[in-house]
Design a protein around this nucleic acid. Structure first.
Lengths: 127, 127
DNA sequence: ATTGTTGCAAAAATTTTGCATTATC
DNA sequence: GATAATGCAAAATTTTTGCAACAAT
């Protein structure tokens, strides 16, 4: 596409990431989209995810069981990772003391802050 | 050792982790200790790191360039990860709004909180 | 034509694991 | 001797990459 060079598949990968709140892994994006787009390659998913990260369209939020999990919501908020089921939940920014200050430390320039709570989620506690 | 079943190598691996503040990767621990203990295996380092994590003797603090970085200091504090050089720095708890509350979210039980700042460190800014 | 994107498969890199051997008590 | 820890190498995973083919303008 003109200027934006977004291919159909690239757009669908981004849409898939943006349309869910499960904080997916690359594999999940691939498997989910594969149903609609049979001729999709995992390499393409990885390549586009890396591109989106560079462009700031998505952010990596956690590494769960060796898999990187990403978030299409780049607004300031925190996350809760369940050690039991591996689910990643959003935690409203109001609950999370995220200070968006930049360059607070001596000579250090902070670009972004990641606040993650680890524990057992409600679903896993109930069971 | 009696009761504690700590082998010499296990103890040396833990000591190596506890004696540095660089927040090492498994590979770094292996390569560093290999100089003193030539017959050390990388598998042993990984096995012991996993053990220490289960026991709460060390904590994973970040995943930098695909490598998990660990910390022998389990007290409440935050970290700064330089996107440029990959160094991981300690951030005093006084600077970090770490709330040690537990089970604050509905039915969720928080075991630990990880607060990480990402940006460019002083050394990389100067250059 | 030229530029960018993808599929495919191989390759890299990190982490785990099976099993025989060695250490520890 | 019984139990646990290790070395070694293979295996399992996730992620990256080379290259030929394809798409778009």
């Amino acid at each position: 596409m003109s200027g934006q060079n977004f291919s159909k598949k690239r757009q669908m990968i981004l849409d898939t990431i943006k349309s869910t709140d499960i904080h997916p892994s690359a594999k999940w994006v691939y498997e989910t989209l594969k149903e609609q787009v049979p001729d999709l390659s995992l390499g393409t998913v990885y390549r586009n995810i890396n591109l989106f990260k560079e462009q700031g369209l998505i952010i990596p939020v956690a590494n769960v069981d060796g898999e990187e999990r990403i978030d299409g919501d780049t607004s300031a908020h925190a996350h809760f990772v369940c050690k039991e089921c591996g689910c990643v939940y959003d935690v409203p920014a109001t609950h999370a003391p995220i200070s968006e200050e930049t360059c607070t430390l001596d000579g250090f320039c902070t670009h972004n802050t990641v606040l993650t709570y680890y524990g057992i989620c409600g679903a896993c506690t109930t069971i």
